[in-house]
Design a protein around this nucleic acid. Sequence first.
DNA 1: CGGGCAAGGTATACCGCTTTACATCGCGCG
DNA 2: CGCGCGATGTAAAGCGGTATACCTTGCCCG
Lengths: 345, 345
Amino acid sequence: MTEPTTKRVTIAAVARLAGVSPSAVSHVFNGRPNVSEATAIRIRAAADELNWRPNFASRKVSGQGGRSLGLVIARSRETFGRDPFFMRLLAGLTEPLSRIGWALSLTLVQADEEEQVYRQWWGEQRVDAFLLVDVRDDDPRLALVEQLGAPAALLGAPVPGPVVSVTVRDGSAFAEAVEHLTGLGHRAITRVTDAPGLAHTRARDRGFRRAARDRGVVAGLAVWHPDAEDPVADLLGRLGGATAIIVDSETIAAEIVAHAPEIGVRVPEQLSVIAWEDSWVSSIARPRLTAFDAPVEESARTAVALLERLVRGEAVEAQTVSGRRLLVRESTAPAPHTHDREDRS
Amino acid sequence: MTEPTTKRVTIAAVARLAGVSPSAVSHVFNGRPNVSEATAIRIRAAADELNWRPNFASRKVSGQGGRSLGLVIARSRETFGRDPFFMRLLAGLTEPLSRIGWALSLTLVQADEEEQVYRQWWGEQRVDAFLLVDVRDDDPRLALVEQLGAPAALLGAPVPGPVVSVTVRDGSAFAEAVEHLTGLGHRAITRVTDAPGLAHTRARDRGFRRAARDRGVVAGLAVWHPDAEDPVADLLGRLGGATAIIVDSETIAAEIVAHAPEIGVRVPEQLSVIAWEDSWVSSIARPRLTAFDAPVEESARTAVALLERLVRGEAVEAQTVSGRRLLVRESTAPAPHTHDREDRS
DNA sequence: CGGGCAAGGTATACCGCTTTACATCGCGCG
DNA sequence: CGCGCGATGTAAAGCGGTATACCTTGCCCG
C-alpha cells in the first residue's frame, strides 16, 4: 500500500544532475564559499528539481548536529491537559524553532522516569538541547544536564547553578496585584498554589510576601488539594480571614469561581479572585476572571534563542522577559464589610 | 560553561570494554542471534557502565530508520490552544510512542505552509511517518503523503484513497444524543460546528441527519463564526426553532452556556446544549455541560500501533475505536413549551 | 578419524552527508 | 614568458552505527 514508490534521492543524485561532485552540493547547502555563484544556482536548481534536502540524520552523524530541542514534561495526562500554559508554550516554541530549522521532540513522563529519559535522549543524540520546565528547588535535572554536558535552559525562576534561565519578571506584577486589591479595600490576601515544590512557586511566594508587607497586608499561602472530595470547599475552609486570593493556576481559579457560589461563597462579593495566568479559560468563566497575562510566547522565543546560542557554544546569560499585565475583569470587587477591617486603615 | 565534559561514548568504546567487536555490540542491541547469552550479558554490562545507547541519527543513516512520528498541526496558536482535544491527543500519543522508543516531532504551521513542511520533514528524513489530523475532504495531504511514499494515518473520518484511518465510531452516539434530547421533548435540534470543511465534520453531519430522520426530528446545521462581534448572539440568532444544539467543540459549548444567559437565553431552560467532546472544561462551565466523551487516548494508541506496522511494511487496515459515552450533566433539560411542538407527536 | 555443520564472532562494506586536504586552472605580474 | 596565487572544485576520510559475508571452533557422526 505505502510502498516507497521512488528510491530516496541523495546528494549524489543532485550532484550528478548538476554535473558536479557531492562535495560541491554540500558546500552550497552549508553556505560555505568555494563555489561560484553560477554553479551554486545550478546546484540549487537541481536540488529543487529532485526535491532534495539534506538528510537530517546524516548531517547529525557527520558533525552538523544541533537541530533538535527536547521537551520532557513530567506531568500526568490529567494535569498536563488542564493547564493551558502548556498549549501556549508549545505553540510559542514551535514558531521560533521552525524559523531556525529545529525539530521539537516532546514527551510526557512520570516523575520517576524523568532523569532516565533525559539520559536516553541525550545518549542517543536524539536531541541537542533541553528546555526544562516545572523546575523544583534542588531539581536533580540541573546536575544531570550539567553532568551530561547537555545545553539546557530553564523556564521559570532562576536557580543556583550553571543552568541558564528565562524568567518572567514578576516583581512589579505582585505590587500591581496587591495594589489593585488594597485599592478595593482588601487587607488579607492569600496566594493559592497547586505546585508548592516548584522553584518559581517559591519565587512567587517571596514576591508576594514582599508586596504584601510593603502595603501592610496580611499575606497567606494555601495549597490546593485536588484530591479532596470537594477541593474548593476544602480550600475555602483554609482561607482564614482572607477576602481575596491570587491563584497560580488559571484552571483552578476557574473552578473556584464556578463552584464557590454553590457552597455559599459569592464571587466577587465575598471573595475576590485573581488568576496568575490568562488564556481563553478566563473568558468562559463567570464571573470573568481578573487575571495576569504572562508573555509565554516571548519566553518561548527567548528560550529558543538562548538554546541556539548555547548549542553553538556561545556564552549566554540568564534572561528576563517582562510583559505581565493585569487584566481587570469581574472576579475582583470591593472587600466585604467586616468589623475589624473597618477599624483599621 | 556547558562544554561537553566527556567525549561522547561510541559503540567502539563499549566493544573495547566488553572485549568484543563493535558488530557484536550492535547485534546484541538489535536483538539479533549470533551472540551467546554470556557475552550478551557482558556487553550489556559494559554499555550500562559507560551509559551508552545507540546513536539515534547513526541508526537512521544505516538503515535502521523508523523511529519518529511527525505531527503537523495547521492551526493558529489561538485555535490550537483553545481546543483541549490537542492536549489529550499529545498526551495520548506520548505514552505509546515512548513505549516503542519513537520520538514525536511536533509543529504548528499556517495552512499555506503545510505541504511544504511535510515535504521538508520527509525529505530530510526527520520523521518516518505522519499522523494527519484535521483532514478535509479532498485534502491535498492525502495525495502528498502518497506521492512521497510516506507512511501515514489519519485521525477522523475515513476518506477515499489509500491513507488508512483511525475513526471514532460515532453512529450510535448520535442515536444516543438525539434520543436523550427527544426523551426530553425536543423536536428540533441543530448541530453547531466551527470547522465546516473537515472530513469528520461532514461525517458527523451525515450521522446526525440520519439519527434525526429516524426519530422524526428537525435537523439543523449552523456554523460558528468566531469573528462576529458577539459570536454567541450571532449563532443563537440563526438557530431557527431549534430548542437544543449539539456543539462540535467543547470550548464553544462552554462559551455558549456562559454567555447565552447574558443575552436572554437561559440554559438549559430555553436551550439545551450538548458538547461533542469532553474534558475538564465541561466541569468549569455552569451549567455543567452534558457531553460526549471521546476515546482520544485510545485513538492515539491505535494510530501509533498502525503507524508502527506501516513503517515496518506490514499491511494494515482502517481501524475504528469505540467508547463514546454520553455524560448527562446540567446543560440539557426538557424542551420549553411551544404551541406547534405540542400539537405534534 | 576426517568431514560437515551449527554456534559464535569478526571483518568490512556501506548509509548519506560533512569536511579537510589536495588538484586545477586562469590570470596578473615581475 | 614563467611563476604564484586566488578561485573553484574534487577526492577521500570520517561520523557512529548496521548488516552481510565470512571465518573459527568444537563437536557429532559415519
